[in-house]
């Protein structure tokens, strides 16, 4: 036997794991998201100080402040919070399910399915509500098709990835075709949606996602997190420990597909949040396993921060939030790959 080195004390007290750090990361990210949110609400043509924003949020604002905060700006911030949280949660679930850090919904065809559904509505001249409905339907149908094609006496991670990549390729082609079929105005509106934007969101855009998060987040975070962590060690081992692996997978895939498509319906297929938020969360918690709660909070902070940057980065000119997450997320991915290569891991 090799000599035993000094025992690292991090995360372990008396040989027993501590989860405090994960909770601290989650709480910290949530706080950060709220700070970003207050700053975002305070910005715009009618600037407000953070203390004014908080006072108004707590019910002490003038009628004008009330209108600006509650009707104009809060829906957008709440959308950003929820979309970020939903995408990150779905991403963390998929990365854990397929046991691959690249296994995010963007790569498995679900996001492209949402895009196809939404584009179909745009091309046929549908309303904004219909566009959101098309996005949800497209995402769910794509999820169902990928799931059925990948099913062979059980769901296996690598087959899901391969089928998902195929579906992504096909749907990207379909989406390109749909864009060429649309009239110029419609195509421009579709492109903005495809980039991912939070501009002009109202409460009616938030509610479906809010309802889904209220139901699905507890199911996934409380009900599925521990069996999911066990399943990461292999299907046979998880079954041996009493996890109903196939039932768990079905529940989690359904929840993650719903969250992804509802997030896409609310803000468009915002890129890279589902991929990067779980990574960042894992680095911050330094804990094994899916880190679902920390990832969810990181995603909320990431998207509210990105939206704040999108509004403020260039004075008088707003960027779609998808541009910011794309640039940030892509940059992070490149840095990560470079760091891993330096460490000799790839």
């Amino acid at each position: 036997m090799t000599a035993v080195g000094p025992m690292p004390v991090r995360r372990v007290a008396g040989g027993i794991p501590l989860r405090l750090r994960a909770v601290a990361v989650g709480a910290g990210c949530l706080l950060l998201a709220l700070v970003f949110g207050v700053l975002a609400v305070g910005g715009g043509d009618y600037p407000m100080s953070p203390s004014d924003v908080v006072r108004t949020l707590l019910g002490g604002g003038s009628p004008a402040e009330d209108f600006v905060v509650h009707e104009l700006r809060l829906p957008r911030v709440v959308t950003a919070l929820l979309v970020g949280a939903a995408l990150a949660l779905a991403g963390a679930v998929f990365q854990s399910l397929v046991r691959n850090p690249l296994g995010s919904p963007d790569l498995l065809g679900f996001t492209q399915g949402s895009a196809a559904g939404a584009l179909l509505v745009v091309v046929t001249g549908g309303s904004s509500a219909a566009l959101a409905g098309g996005a949800v339907l497209g995402g769910v149908v794509a999820g169902l098709v990928v799931y059925v094609l990948a099913w062979r006496g059980g769901l296996h991670g690598h087959r899901l990835v391969l089928v998902g990549i195929g579906a992504t390729a096909i749907l990207t082609g379909v989406n390109g075709y749909l864009l060429t079929r649309g009239r110029l105005m419609e195509a421009a509106r579709a492109m903005l949606w495809l980039t991912g934007s939070l501009d002009g969101r109202g409460w009616e855009d938030v509610l479906p996602l809010l309802a889904a998060m209220a139901v699905l987040a507890p199911v996934v975070l409380i009900g599925c997190a521990r069996p999911l962590a066990i399943t990461e060690m292999g299907d046979d081992l998880a079954r041996g420990l009493g996890v109903r692996v196939q039932g768990l997978r079905l529940t989690l895939v359904a929840a993650a597909v719903l969250l992804t498509s509802l997030a896409a319906a609310a803000a468009g297929p915002v890129s890279f949040v589902a991929l990067t938020a779980p990574h960042l969360a894992r680095r911050m918690t330094a804990a094994p396993g899916p880190n679902l709660l920390a990832a969810t909070c990181t995603g909320a902070a990431l998207l509210t921060g990105a939206d704040l940057a999108a509004q403020r980065l260039f004075a008088g000119h707003q960027l779609p939030v998808g541009v910011v997450t794309g640039v940030l997320g892509g940059g992070y991915l490149v840095w990560l790959l470079a760091a891993q290569r330096k460490a000799g891991r790839i």
Binding site: P8, R11, V12, G15, I16, P17, R99, R226, P227, A229, I230, E232, M233, G234, D236, L237, G240, L241, G242, V243, A286, A287, P288, G289
Partner: peptide, 22 residues
Amino acid sequence: LPQTSVAPDGITVAELVGRGRY
């Protein structure tokens, strides 16, 4: 105890053994 099992990245011995309590 299956033939192939995957220890999650960054898991400690105590944590892995603790998972047997599931």
